[in-house]
Amino acid sequence: MDLIGIWVAAFLTLCIYSFLYRDNPLYRFAEHLFVGISVGYGIVLSIHQGFLPLAWKPFWEAITFKDPSGLWVIIPIAFGLLFFARLSPKHTWLIRYPIAVLIGYGSGIAIPNVLRANIFEQTRGTLQPFGKMTETIAANGDTIPALSTFEIFGAILMVIGVICTLTYFFFSVEHRGPIKGLSKVGIAFLMIGFGSAFGNTVMGRVALLIQRVDFLMFDWIASFGTIFNSIF
């Protein structure tokens, strides 16, 4: 059984890699299979992890008087059912209600989190090292600064980077004079950051490629021997 799994995985891997040459029927087969299976799997997962425990079970328990508190699920179920209004051209407009709720809910959840994580936390992280610059710590009986020269340099560089990058993202001000200078430094900081992120991610992707090649070489090709031995 394992052998069949290895061969199917190897065949599909090679089908997908054949795209590197050009579009071909093997790639198309793997693509459609992948999409079809993922959709089917997604539907089953939604039914078992979403619909059944969150909607059907509490609803059924409510209407059979096992747990009437579950009756409130009728409201979200009703809103969800409005998505099916799309099937009737006359009632398509009803779909706007669940969409409005979802967008409102999505924005309400996302915006405060974005504010906290991307603005407040980042601002705090930028400022915090400056509080330690005047601090000293005792080590081996000597009093030494809490931050090394390199850390102080890093903290100053970070503030310059944040201020300049922030200036680049001012849209309602014309980038002239000092603003232009600051924003140019800001874009330079961005590009340096992107460069390092690029290198870092490429290394990760190469690791994935190595993993796949490793599978083809040591699992798939090794299985040739097993087949050969079982036949002869």
Binding site: F19, A30, E31, F34, S38
Partner: peptide, 19 residues
């Protein structure tokens, strides 16, 4: 709709681009 799966979606969109 194509699929919710990340790489199946990428494979589907890539196929569309080429074709």
């Amino acid at each position: 709709f194509i699929t919710e799966s990340q790489f199946a979606y990428a494979a589907g969109v890539d196929g569309m681009m080429i074709r």
